[in-house]
Amino acid sequence: LTVEVTLDGRRIELHGLSEEAHEILRHALERNADDKEIKKILEELRK
């Protein structure tokens, strides 16, 4: 799955996400998580 997010003013596409990762990010974006929170989530998903 692919998600497009804006971090530090740049639009980035995240490819190859699992369903779980996609859901976690989608929920964070829906509640307008800040860049710091999104980065933390991405860091966790990379593990």
Rank of each mutant, 00 (worst) to 15 (best):
H27P: 01
I38A: 01
D34P: 13
E19K: 14
L1D: 05
T2K: 11
T2L: 07
H22Q: 11
T6S: 06
S18H: 03
G16A: 05
K39S: 09
A21Q: 14
L1K: 10
E4K: 06
H22F: 15
D34H: 07
L14V: 12
G9L: 02
H22N: 08
A28G: 01
L17H: 01
D8I: 01
E19P: 12
K36T: 12
H15V: 13
E43Y: 09
I41P: 00
E30C: 12
R46H: 13
A28P: 00
R11W: 10
H22E: 09
E4R: 05
A33V: 05
D34A: 09
E44C: 12
S18T: 10
K36W: 11
A28N: 01
I24W: 06
T2R: 08
R31N: 11
A33I: 05
E30Y: 06
V3Q: 05
A21W: 15
G16Y: 07
E20N: 08
D35C: 06
T6W: 15
K39R: 13
E30R: 04
H27V: 12
E19V: 14
L42H: 00
L25D: 00
E37R: 02
L29E: 03
E13H: 11
L25R: 00
E13Q: 13
N32W: 08
E23Y: 10
A33K: 03
H22G: 09
I12G: 02
E44A: 11
I24M: 09
E23C: 05
S18C: 01
L17M: 06
E43W: 11
R46W: 15
R46D: 12
S18Q: 03
E13G: 03
E44Q: 11
K40V: 11
L25V: 07
L45Q: 02
R31D: 05
E4Q: 09
D35T: 10
L25N: 00
G16Q: 06
R46F: 15
E37P: 00
D8M: 02
K39Y: 12
K47M: 15
D34R: 04
S18D: 08
E20P: 04
L25S: 00
E43M: 10
L17R: 00
D8F: 03
L14P: 01
I41S: 00
K36E: 14
K40P: 00
K36G: 13
L1M: 11
K39D: 05
D35Q: 12
R26S: 10
H15F: 10
R10T: 13
K40M: 13
E37C: 02
E30F: 07
E13M: 11
N32L: 08
I41A: 01
L1R: 06
I12D: 03
G9D: 06
L29M: 11
L14R: 01
L42F: 04
G16C: 08
H27Q: 14
K47R: 10
R26N: 08
V5H: 02
S18M: 03
S18N: 07
N32D: 09
V3R: 01
L7F: 06
D8A: 05
A33T: 04
A33L: 10
L42I: 14
R11E: 09
D35Y: 07
E19W: 13
E30H: 06
H15N: 10
L42M: 06
E44K: 11
E4A: 12
L25T: 00
D35F: 08
V3H: 05
K47G: 10
E43A: 11
I24Q: 09
E19C: 09
E20M: 08
L42R: 00
E20I: 11
H27L: 14
K40N: 08
H15I: 12
R10V: 15
K36L: 13
R26Q: 11
E13I: 15
D34K: 08
G9Y: 02
L29F: 07
G16W: 09
R31E: 07
H27E: 15
R26E: 05
L25K: 00
K40I: 10
T6N: 08
I38C: 05
R26D: 01
K36R: 12
I38K: 01
L29D: 01
A28V: 04
L42A: 01
G16T: 04
R46N: 14
K39A: 09
E19Q: 14
L7T: 03
E43R: 12
E43T: 07
E30K: 06
S18K: 03
G9Q: 02
E20C: 08
K39M: 14
L45I: 15
E44P: 01
L25E: 00
G9P: 01
R46T: 14
H27T: 13
D35H: 08
I41G: 00
V5Y: 04
G9S: 02
E23K: 13
V3G: 04
L7A: 03
E23T: 08
E23M: 13
G16R: 03
R10S: 13
E13R: 13
T2C: 08
L29N: 03
A21D: 10
E37M: 07
E19L: 12
R31A: 10
G16P: 02
A21S: 08
E23L: 11
L45M: 08
A33Y: 08
E43N: 07
E43D: 12
R10D: 13
E13Y: 13
V3S: 05
R26K: 12
A21G: 07
G9I: 02
E43L: 10
K40D: 13
I12H: 04
R31G: 08
S18L: 03
K36F: 13
E23P: 00
L42Y: 04
A28S: 03
H15M: 10
E19T: 12
L7Q: 04
V3K: 02
D35S: 14
T6I: 14
L29P: 00
D35L: 07
E37N: 03
G9R: 01
N32R: 06
L25Q: 00
H15T: 14
E19G: 08
G9K: 01
I41T: 01
L17S: 00
E37Q: 07
E20V: 10
E44M: 10
R11P: 09
H22L: 15
H27S: 15
E23H: 12
E4Y: 13
E30T: 05
L42W: 04
H22K: 13
D34T: 13
L42V: 08
I12Y: 14
R10E: 15
K47S: 13
R11G: 06
I12T: 05
G9T: 02
E37Y: 06
R46M: 15
D35I: 10
L14S: 02
I41E: 00
L42E: 00
L42T: 01
L17E: 01
T2Y: 10
I41R: 00
T2M: 12
A21E: 14
E37W: 06
I41V: 04
K39T: 09
G16H: 08
E13V: 15
L29S: 03
I41W: 03
K39P: 00
L1S: 07
E19N: 10
T6G: 02
E23Q: 12
N32Y: 09
